[in-house]
Design a protein around this nucleic acid. Structure first.
Length: 473
DNA sequence: TGAAATGTTGGGGCG
DNA sequence: ACGCCCCAACATTTC
């Protein structure tokens, strides 16, 4: 009898409770990843998945139990493989998205009906969403008290070590990952991803160590400066579970312990980890917020249909440099700095009045760190419809945000070569640049770089008018 | 983890 | 010398 360990968003060996429990059973272990055509990740995320599975397969091979890759409906694959491998049970770590919860419930029941032992574990969060509630026994709706309650439960149990070795079930068929075509060929829009990213558990661990040795020191200030690259960039590793929040928590706390000067940076970094927890917590308690406004009043907000404006936004051709730089960074590298995500999202929702769900879907297709819970909660935060969200009337001015967080325009110059030579005084507002400055920079407004597709002041007034309509109901 | 509008204060120019 | 006005600079309110 063997145990199937069903890997999903936990592509790691260390601190993997499902894998650890299977190894501890003493039975042979069948590590499995299923590509389910009905639950396909977005394009950039698939690029990451390819690399991550590659790394996981290598690490598992070294432990003696090769990774089995299968394509199909998760339930069918599990039953079939359980028969082939003579499995007595299937172990996995829990996911918290509505579709995944529904799938896992059904599979659990179906496995049990066949006499198989289906067991799930906590691997993706510091605490289960149902383990944190207010004094009144209700789920938190505001981040700060949630975060205090969560932190009060620390420490969260030391991370588990990776199993030393595994007994395998020989002779199981596996797909050739190349046949899954997770990475694009022509056109290869991911050509630059490899310069920036290295998927896999080992790379995640190195990334964390480098961050705790470097940028964490003044993370509190620098994390808002997109040109500084002072963030941890752990998000894609976290999404695929190549590293666990518990490992991050412990490593960061240990670092603050040995070097007290880092304590403030560590605290604000862990607070961001807290936002990740909060997003999963919210989605788990209010699954409707994946595709509907968390606040009912926003349910009939008068969004505008404007495909041409949406397309210009996706391509980074809005004429607002900080927005365009962000959208270009996203397309080229599969990532966008968080400050810029907020600005570009605010622009789509408030300046263009386009439904946040359209923006969320674009991000989910283009971000290597695309995570349904974080992304949807983030968009609803920007749109003002979420829990503990920024009020709708809090509208970012893309020029002021740019000037505040990228004062010298270094981020713009990196991602918008057509503006690179423009005088810093005008780089966040090129439409105000005098002809001489434009000439000197080789810019022809409307030709080499677009004029603004909306006037921000007018767009702001339009957004506030739309909000007033909603509130009157 | 806003920005803009509006209100208040105080220094200085100027008749 | 005095009052008036202007307008930064800052604070508060509103969206």
């Amino acid at each position: 009898m063997s145990i199937i360990v069903w890997f999903r968003q936990d592509l790691r060996l260390a601190d993997n409770p499902a894998l650890a429990a299977a190894a501890a059973s003493g039975k042979p272990v069948v590590p499995l990843y299923i590509l389910d055509p009905d639950m396909m990740p977005g394009g950039a995320s698939r690029w990451w998945l390819h690399g991550s599975l590659d790394a996981l397969a290598r690490d598992l091979r070294a432990l003696g139990a090769p990774l089995v890759l299968r394509r199909g409906s998760a339930r069918d694959v599990l039953h079939e493989l359980a028969r082939e491998a003579g499995a007595s049970g299937v172990f996995w770590n829990r996911c918290y998205e509505p579709d995944a919860i529904a799938r896992d419930r059904a599979i659990e029941k179906s496995l049990a009906s066949q006499g198989l032992d289906a067991a799930s574990f906590k691997g993706a969060l510091l605490r289960e969403p149902w383990e944190i509630s207010t004094a009144a026994g209700m789920p938190y709706k505001v981040f700060t008290p949630f975060w205090r309650a969560l932190a009060a439960q620390a420490p969260f149990g030391a991370p588990l070590p990776a199993p030393g070795s595994l007994r395998a079930v020989p002779g199981l068929a596996t797909d050739d990952p190349a046949s899954w075509r997770l990475r694009p060929s022509r056109p290869d829009w991911a050509a630059a991803f490899g310069d920036v990213w290295l998927p896999g558990e080992r790379a995640a661990r190195l990334r964390l160590a480098a961050f705790l040795d470097g940028s964490v020191r003044d993370y509190g200030e620098a994390r808002n400066m997109p040109a500084r690259e002072a963030t941890s960039r752990l998000s894609p590793h976290l999404h695929w579970g190549e590293i666990s929040p518990r490992q991050i928590w412990f490593a960061a706390q240990a670092r603050a312990g040995e070097q007290p000067a880092l304590a403030a940076g560590v605290e604000s970094f862990l607070r961001e980890l807290g936002w990740r927890e909060f997003s999963h917590y919210l989605i788990c308690h209010w699954p409707h917020m994946v595709d509907r406004a968390w606040k009912p009043a926003y349910g009939n907000f008068p969004w505008r249909r404007d495909e041409s404006a949406f397309r210009l936004w996706t391509k980074g051709l809005t004429g607002y440099p900080i927005v365009d730089a962000g959208m270009r960074e996203l397309w080229r590298t599969g990532y966008m700095h968080n400050r810029v995500r907020m600005i570009s999202a605010s622009f789509l929702v408030k300046d263009l009045l386009i439904d946040w769900r359209e923006g969320a879907a674009w991000f989910e297709d283009t971000l290597v760190d695309a995570d349904l819970a974080c992304n949807r909660a983030g968009w609803q935060w920007v749109a003002g419809s979420g829990a503990d969200a920024a009020p709708f009337f809090r509208i970012f001015n893309p020029v002021l945000q740019g000037e505040k967080f990228d004062a010298d325009g270094a981020y713009l110059r990196r991602h918008l070569p057509e503006l690179a030579r423009l005088d810093t005084r005008f780089i966040h507002r090129p439409w105000e640049a005098p002809p001489a400055a434009l000439d000197a920079a080789g810019i022809v407004p409307g030709k080499t770089y677009p004029l603004p597709i909306v006037d921000h002041a007018a767009a702001r007034a339009r957004a506030l008018a739309a909000l007033a309509k909603v509130q009157r109901r």
